[in-house]
Amino acid sequence: MLQDIPHGFYFILSGILFTIGAIGAITRRNAIVIFMCIELMLNAVNLAFITAGNALSSMDGAVFVFFIMTVAAVEAAVGLAIFITIFRLKGTINADEVNLLKG
């Protein structure tokens, strides 16, 4: 007879995913990969929300995740449109070469 899975495990998994996403966002240069890393960090936060909501048998965590997903979808549409605009302007989306605001 095994114990039920402790909630701390889910929180640790969420922390691991968030860290991987953060390291990717810092170290990668392709803007689209950076964007995917940010989506991964959002997902890690969603996992923490769902875990906390489930632990307190509340649905508010799931509702919050629903709104985060909405924002992430809007962010994806606008962000990718910005990438296309930058690509037209500069011919690249390498994050190190896009320095129009650098003065």
Binding site: Y10, F35, N43, N46, I50, A62, V65, M69, A76, L80
Partner: peptide, 23 residues
């Protein structure tokens, strides 16, 4: 596994479907 079936389906449809297709 965390009793969030609706969010799981929305995750597959919105993230794995729509957002990743856009990307």
């Amino acid at each position: 596994m965390q009793n969030a079936q609706f969010i799981a389906i929305a995750q597959i449809m919105v993230y794995a479907g729509a957002i990743m297709m856009l990307i």
